[in-house]
Amino acid sequence: MIEFVRNVRLWFVPAEVREDGETPDYRFSLANERTFLAWLRTALALIGGGFAVDQFLPDLRWAWRVGLALALLGAGVLCSLRAVNHWVRCERAMRRGEDLPVSRFPALLSLVVAVVAVAMVLVVLVGWEG
């Protein structure tokens, strides 16, 4: 958590990132940027999914609908914050010549998506009967 706060400071103080180590090959930085953008798209897709659940499942009970929508929106927020955090960490590791940071987040996100998918199947089945 302290590490995260330290990274948050780096988002807004780019000079500190630039002072660290040496500038890597620009292609590595661009690859890191594209990975960041891919995660941002994942976040935007989750947020869009939240809107879609709210808009396109009007027959769902209010609690289920709002709960799912908020869960997806929350996942989108987490995903985008993690995207910028991971980008800063990778950028710094590349400048220092260290190994790139590993992360549990992809596995965590896949589990959450799987759980939401199963929940949707249950909701559709229950909605069908009720």
Partner: peptide
């Protein structure tokens, strides 16, 4: 080209997060 600036990355993420908050 030079590397992407953290400030701009933060701005892009801020827009995304704020959109999610509006959505909520």
């Amino acid at each position: 080209p030079v590397a992407f600036a953290p400030r701009h990355a933060a701005a892009a993420v801020l827009c995304t997060v704020a959109m999610a908050v509006c959505g909520a």
